[in-house]
Design a binder for these strands. Structure first.
Lengths: 232, 232
DNA sequence: AAGTGGTCTAGACCACTGG
DNA sequence: CAGTGGTCTAGACCACTTA
């Protein structure tokens, strides 16, 4: 995929400061020559970069860098429920793990019947000794076979990618603000006055199967959602 | 733009149920023939539709409808601070309107000096007699000249599009959860226990100028943010 | 008027799915 | 193996900016 070569070339250029914030970049034809690809391929790369907010294309004028060097690190985000903060120091505690039936809403989003079996998982995520997220996850057992408690304590996503060799392609989600129930107050050490940032999401594999319906509730101190919206 | 013709054809097809949820759509070549455009143009339209989560493309297999009829109504969202719920019954009360200097963070995002003049606006949005949003807006006066209180009570965006004939192209934003300060408690009739859903955004014109830096705080009962994330 | 990005095309070739 | 989507190309033409 030559267009990814172009995407990476430009991301690198921005990171190293070769293409500086607010400045004009080389023209499409120039990039095409430099990188030995066709102009259309460069344009496809520019589509991706401008959708992700890194550059701005101005017809008749040129291509401009829109993102600062230090902002580039995040790159284009993968879907997945915790690409939202550094994963490194994040610990996981499984508080519930069984096979059973999904609630109506979950079954509907997973496109299964409420008779079908799913893993029902509850996890707490802990950052530097502090519980910051509670997760409720439903996954159909025949889509994601062989889940164990060990995997849950590490990363479900790693297991899906590396062991099951499946590819995650997209997710849809809704962000709202909610109050914790009494269990959540205990687990996250909150009072009735506190609130949580809730993400309800459905995640899909690249063959279109919905494989996860999850509800994540984050303490507000450790939550932010950043994004860019571009006009079509 | 022929690709928009294709996008609309498919959106219509999904809305009317001609292309049904979970079912296979016509092939690329078929669509190209039907609509009298080239295959590449159809592919460009499919790029847009799959990024917005309406369809799923499976290499070697076909194109599948991924969104229900009733979900299509929202279409592809325009950036802009309140496309997030029905605009109709939304009233606006301007509580502050002056020309002055922007705070540091706003000036930086707007790429102006802190000496430059901006409109400083505070508005309350009211839904069915109930105040639900407080907005703080900063706009450079030389980018958006001629703002009046009347315009603020209607729609700034309409003024920019229809009177100034400028095009809004993108926005970047951050969603977090915050506590109201005492003014906000008064205006929105809240107590210290309540919380707000905050969106901080910078909005750009299609020539790349940042024309608005705004902070919106919504009461949680009337806020949800829906989106789709797609792998590159 | 020259330069630059945006759209569109026809066609080649590759990668994958599914019978 | 046939069908289908994904990538890539060279080139035409249009729309817009800038000087």
């Amino acid at each position: 995929m030559k267009y990814m070569k172009v995407v990476e070339h430009i991301q690198n250029g921005i990171e190293t400061g070769k293409y500086a914030y607010g400045k004009k970049m080389p023209t499409i034809n120039n990039l095409a020559d430099q990188l030995q690809v066709s102009a259309m391929t460069v344009k496809k790369a520019l589509d991706i970069l401008s959708k992700s907010g890194m550059i701005e294309r101005r017809q008749g004028s040129g291509i401009y860098v829109k993102m600062n060097t230090n902002q580039v690190k995040k790159r284009i985000p993968l879907s997945g429920n915790s690409s939202r903060f550094p994963r490194e120091e994040l610990q996981t505690k499984v508080i519930h793990f069984e096979v059973g039936h999904a609630p109506k809403e979950a079954a509907s989003k997973l496109q299964i019947s409420s008779e079908d079996f799913v893993y029902i998982i509850e996890r707490i995520r802990i950052l530097k000794q502090r519980p910051i997220i509670i997760e409720y996850v439903y996954m159909p057992i025949n889509v994601i076979p062989g889940l164990t408690k060990n995997i849950l304590e590490d990363s479900i996503y790693k297991y899906i990618r590396q062991v099951l060799k499946k590819k995650i392609s997209s997710s849809d989600f809704i962000i709202t603000g909610v109050r914790p129930n009494s269990d959540e107050q205990q687990y996250l050490k909150l009072s009735t006055n506190d609130f949580l940032m809730q993400i309800i999401q459905t995640v899909y594999l690249d063959d279109g199967t919905a494989f996860e319906y999850s509800i994540d509730k984050h303490i507000p101190e450790e939550f932010e959602y950043r994004s860019v919206e571009t006009d079509i």
